[in-house]
Amino acid sequence: MASLTRLLERNLRNSSTAAGRRLYSQTQEEPAAGTKHEFDDEEFRVLNLRAAKQTDQQKRRVFKKEAALPPRHLKMATDQDWTAVWPGPRTFQPSSVPLPLRQGYTEKGAAPPSKFVNAELMKIPNFLHLTPPAIRQQCEALKKFCTPWPKGLESVEKWEKHFPIEVKSTDYCHALPTIRNPDARRVTLNIKLSDLKFDAHAKDKFLRLVGDRYNPNTGILTIVADRCPLRKQNYDYAMYLLTACYHESFVTEPWEQNKSEADMEYYSFERNKSKQTAEAIINWGIPTDAAKLEVSQDFAQTVELLINEGENEYNLGRYKEEVLKLLSVRNE
């Protein structure tokens, strides 16, 4: 359809006015042709845009570009010091990198675009400033600020022994108007529970005090302090918490005597009804003055396991065996 109208247009321009009228009526009959050419040479003046443009172009002075230097990598010596050329992180600059790099997607079979005017190379972070010689030089320069490794702390065991507490904090360096980062105040304190000495009551109480800060899988206690505005304060607070919890765990309050069976943190065969029942069963029919039979240690363990760990196939199976053994019933 578009090509048809274009044809018509050309005809209109070339033909005389009479022919123009004829065609004009034709297009009127055919509204689907899309564009209407409602011009008549006698009635409308044609605005000739093209001619105007040409005169405009003639007036405009041709702008001549200043000659630019050739890319400077052509002048670089082959044994130059690369760390001086690219001392810090910066966006890729094709004229300064003497490598024939190519990157980017093209049609199949064609070579990827070269490094000049290549946005793909500029987008990705480059590590041209972290070449091994550069890192070596920087390490050399920073050596004078380092101290030798402390004597007496040569192995992991030794330093874990002397420094059982591990304190972690993070420094932040960023390009913002502020040099402070709220996360920098956070102090994390780690200690292995095995490094602290407890008795049974104290350990139980300590674990109750620290709650989920203790990870039973790794045996590590973690205290995170971030409630104070400064790192120093948070560090002091974390150390205070550790000390306070430790000493508190050795204190036995009067109300701790009121601990009933339901408050126990684990099932102990010795203290429980099932021991009495089991003993009652095996001592059944034995005269009261005779020595009482004791429940076997295996049975006690199995019951404890069953209740503390929960019912599973293994525990249940062992329990069955022990019960049969206890009652001297043969399993056929």
Partner: peptide, 16 residues
């Protein structure tokens, strides 16, 4: 001091 130490590793690039 650290910055000065790092800066001292950077030489001059005659082409730059």
């Amino acid at each position: 001091d650290i910055l000065n130490a790092l800066a001292s590793t950077v030489g001059r690039d005659p082409t730059a």
